[in-house]
């Protein structure tokens, strides 16, 4: 076990993947001498060379499109998208090419790409630097989508993502990059598979489902609720596509109450998918309609307004009160 930051844990995972497989290359903007704007690829170009850690011209579609061509030739490219809001120029290559080529070639061409995306807000950033675009990709068949929440997962899941023969979107909660944790660098073999959720905090009264940066917030909410005599079970989804419904379903059958929280806007978001699917799967176990605590249906707001947009401990607890039928902010409101 080594104590390291979240960012260093990703770096460590990348390094191990590159050591284990010469076909792993990284391509992105400013990832070479600078080590990336968040220093996630720190020192990798120095140690592996400019042909394996490739500083790309500023063109996201081309970063993805050339990675597709490299994958045709047997490489396993890791693409770094510098910020969440910069992924859209690459959207066509991801959705039309990366996601579909295995299907379109009847399994002959594999696209073992990993697309790293620092995502989410809470760092007071400029516009286009705080977005949560994950639902665009969970809506796209052929992609796998993961979001990591702690240094240990950051280190192991990046290696699992690179080893996957399917393309993986790997979402990194940038506001947790400096969070420290114990990391077993050699935990890969016994690690939980990439597509499984984890019960982060066991509980009996309410199931609270989230991922990425909000896992930490959810843990804090569970602690606060406990002081209030409410037992909240926190589930870190880890995989956003496929969703690990069996883990969530087992929890909801036990608690009868579901709260989903994410930073992304509500409409058409993952919370809607999870609420609908759990309602289909265990309707008769539910004591209350599932509740979503999410970002607002707005463009990401300026830094000084983001505290109103992002779910925080109190908003999550308000949702917990709602599924418990306790007095809450919406009490008395006619629908």
């Amino acid at each position: 076990m080594t104590t390291m930051t979240f960012g260093r844990a990703i770096n460590t995972g990348l390094r191990k993947a590159m050591e284990n497989d010469p076909r792993v290359v990284i391509i992105g903007e400013d990832i070479g001498a600078l080590g990336g704007v968040f220093r996630i690829t720190d020192e990798l170009q120095k140690d592996f060379g400019a042909h394996r850690v490739i500083d790309a011209p500023l063109a996201e579609s081309a970063i993805l499109g050339t990675a597709v061509g490299m994958a045709y030739r047997g490489y396993r490219p890791v693409c770094e998208i510098q910020f969440d809001g910069f992924i859209y120029p690459a959207f066509d290559q991801i959705v039309s090419q990366v996601a579909k080529l295995h299907y379109r070639t009847r399994g002959r061409v594999r696209m073992p790409l990993t697309i790293r995306v620092p995502f989410g807000g809470g760092i007071g950033a400029a516009e286009h630097h705080s977005e949560s675009p994950e639902a665009y990709f969970t809506h796209t068949s052929g992609l796998r989508v993961v979001a990591v929440s702690n240094p240990q997962d950051a280190c192991t899941v990046i290696q699992q993502a690179i080893a996957s023969d399917d393309p993986v979107l790997y979402f990194e909660p940038k506001r947790r990059y400096h969070t420290k944790g114990d990391v077993d660098e050699n935990a890969l073999e016994d690690a939980l598979p990439m597509d499984r959720a984890r019960v982060e905090v066991p509980g009996t009264d309410v199931t609270l489902v989230t991922y990425g940066a909000l896992v930490q917030t959810a843990r804090e909410a569970a602690r606060a609720a406990e002081d209030d005599g409410v037992s909240v079970e926190v589930i870190d989804l880890r995989s956003l596509s496929p969703l690990d419904y069996s883990t969530v379903e087992a929890s909801v059958r036990k608690t009868g109450r579901l709260v989903v929280t994410h930073e992304a806007a509500r409409t058409g978001g993952l919370g809607a998918e999870i609420a609908a699917s759990l309602t289909e799967r265990c309707f008769y176990y539910l004591e209350h309609a599932p509740v979503r605590i999410t970002g607002m249906d707005i463009p990401y707001p300026p830094a000084k307004m983001e505290r109103h947009h992002l779910p925080d401990l109190d908003r999550i607890l308000d949702g917990v009160d709602r599924v418990l039928g306790r007095p809450n902010s919406l009490t008395g409101l006619e629908d």
Binding site: G65, A67, V68, G69, A71, R73
Partner: peptide, 18 residues
């Protein structure tokens, strides 16, 4: 998708060079 393949060719060529 018009023109998308030009990037694939370029990436393939980069890999051939590697």
């Amino acid at each position: 998708i018009i023109g998308a393949q030009t990037l694939h060719a370029t990436g393939y060529a980069m890999a051939a060079k590697f």
